[in-house]
Design a binder for these strands. Structure first.
Lengths: 210, 210, 210, 210
DNA sequence: TATGAATGAGGGTTCATTCAT
DNA sequence: TATGAATGAACCCTCATTCAT
């Protein structure tokens, strides 16, 4: 008994675990498509299980509820997006700061483009759905806001940034990028991330005044 | 019946019409409160008719559906908000352009503050509800975008605005203001419209660079 | 407006109220039949509304839930049954006490017979369904128990009842009658309430010893 | 396969059979605990297999269904309870009949106390669950009823029991004991089996009349 | 024999909308 | 026009049982 059990258990549980994860991922992926196509409110569990080709109960084997799977998708996206935002490297051999900033914006644009549909939902329906989601979202934005503000203050210390209200300006910078993405997403046209990155940066740095 | 119809019709229908309108307005007003308190999805027709003190069927004498009344509220708000945005007066006796711009931003902030709850819903739940609402919303933003772009190009012709990508920059400006409002609305703190107006304007005009 | 409103309101509301009550009673009656036929767990809301010829939602217009309507039926029955148990009249012109006691038992038997099916359910499925029902049931039994005990103690004071453990004996008396009813209900044969009443009484008063 | 079957079958099948039985018994024992704690309707198969530490499918290797295992537990209990009820020994050297009767009642009380929770379920939830269970239950009660009736008639022949309706009185006696147990079970207080036994017997033999 | 992932029927409740009065 | 009782589609989630490994 033991000679077959031990390896079996290991082998099986490993394989099983892997399979479980892949199944879960598959459902998650399917759900992303369905949510993207129909929106959160328009998506019924039936839509997801039909698309995934699984039984009703199977869904609940992997996810607690409709809200839970949605929350997970949103979280995934938030983590990925947040990961794109990193501080600039001020070292002597680092690339020019402006280039680094452009690169950050470009990275975000690329991420968003990859998950265009889900981001669309994130921006549209995720807000106000559920306290949990709302919390995550506002934490996400807050974290970005704080990051930007911190960077501005740093810049001020270095004499690179002039004397502005960093709280309000951080919101403005965040908003300008966010809206740009929103708008472009709606129009299915996020072309040339770098060009957009440069334009945004130029605007944020120097304003519009001649 | 018929012999008394014609003369009566005018008097009656006028009064009736007026009454109808006032009742309609009353329901609309009530609905705004309820939607504001509970959100679109959280509001049931029962909530509205209870608050308005009317019968179930009566509601449907004035509005086609839950969505219809919501749409109407959203439209009203969009019209009011759009009305706040007007071109600057470049005449010789006009106040300084920057003051006019500050005044425009302040006006918007005040409007939004007046309809804080509904705006919150506009920003949160209105999007993705219905194709009609979506259309109206994107038209609204598009109109603002075009207005800003036009103003920038005007400014360029006058030598006031430097050579920027007006399309992208218009989005940035719009986004910076929108997000600021969103964020402040969520925090129940839209204090000092003018200070915010000045900070935004300063940022948009001159950027953050020292 | 007012001349038609006032009377209409009254007339209508009266008629409406009456109709509402009769409708409610009708559903209640139907539900009793269905519960009787299928038991609590075996009864689905669909069964009730099908039997009553009403729409799904209509049911919830009159009753909060499946449990609620069941609870109401049980309560009704408990009240009726409890009402049958009254103290004996010890006045000089009252009928013989034993006859009064026989009459009480007979009354209960008749009540139970009238609501045979529901009582069957009361005895079978009502217990352990829900804390509320359980509470009502144990209060019901407790009330009977206390009544019997009180009567026994009274009898002891009058020298009619010998020195027994009134607490335990009250349980025994209650149990003997309850089981008799249970058993007869199961067998669809509650014939001759008075004969049963006499036999039970004789047994309880004098025991089986020769 | 076949050449090794016969010799092995015995040894193996014996051990296997024993193991199977012990596993079965173990699950049964676990199920009793779970049913006792959560009631029939409140118990899910998951609860049982979790408590037993077996896999879902394994359960169905030993029992046909949730109902089947419950039925088996009920049967076990009924057999044990029934076993406590034995006729009195009327031989010359036997203890006094009344003492024997008291002992019988005490035995039942003790049995019930041992399986308090399961008995509670037997009395509450077992009824009306399933035709099979119902049949077993009514057979159980019927058997007790017949036993009591037979004893009464025997007593009548011996001149110990007076002329009563043995059918009805048998029900009364059974009912008085059953209810007493029910009531005490609900109150978690089955103290002093012998005292209860004596009181019940005294009541049943001599009634309450002074 | 043991496993546990998969199944899918089942059921209670909500609520926007209709319609007879 | 006003009423509010009636409607019934919609929908999520549970859980006993099956079956491939």
């Amino acid at each position: 008994m033991s000679e077959s059990t031990t390896p079996r258990v290991d082998g099986r549980s490993l394989r099983a675990e892997a399979q479980r994860e892949s199944r879960r991922a598959e459902i998650l992926r399917t759900a992303e498509t369905v949510f993207a196509a129909k929106g959160y409110h328009g998506t019924r569990i039936s839509d997801i299980i039909d698309a995934a080709g699984i039984a009703r109960g199977t869904f609940y084997l992997y996810f607690e509820s409709k809200q839970a799977i949605f929350l997970e998708l949103i979280e995934q996206l938030l983590v990925e997006l947040r990961g794109n935002v990193v501080g600039v490297d001020a070292g002597p051999e680092a690339p020019p700061i402006q280039d680094q900033l452009v690169e950050t914006v470009s990275r975000i644009v690329r991420s968003v483009t990859e998950h265009k549909e889900l981001t669309r939902i994130l921006l549209r329906e995720a807000v106000g759905l559920d306290a949990d989601v709302d919390k995550k979202l506002s934490n996400f934005y807050l974290s970005l806001h704080e990051f930007i503000r911190y960077s501005l203050e740093n810049g001020q210390r270095l004499g690179l940034v002039r004397d502005v209200d960093t709280d309000i300006v951080a919101s403005c910078i965040l908003g300008s990028i966010k809206y740009l993405l929103e708008e472009r997403l709606m129009q299915d046209a996020v072309a040339d991330p770098e060009r957009i990155g440069r334009a945004v940066l130029d605007y944020n740095l120097r304003g519009v005044l001649a």
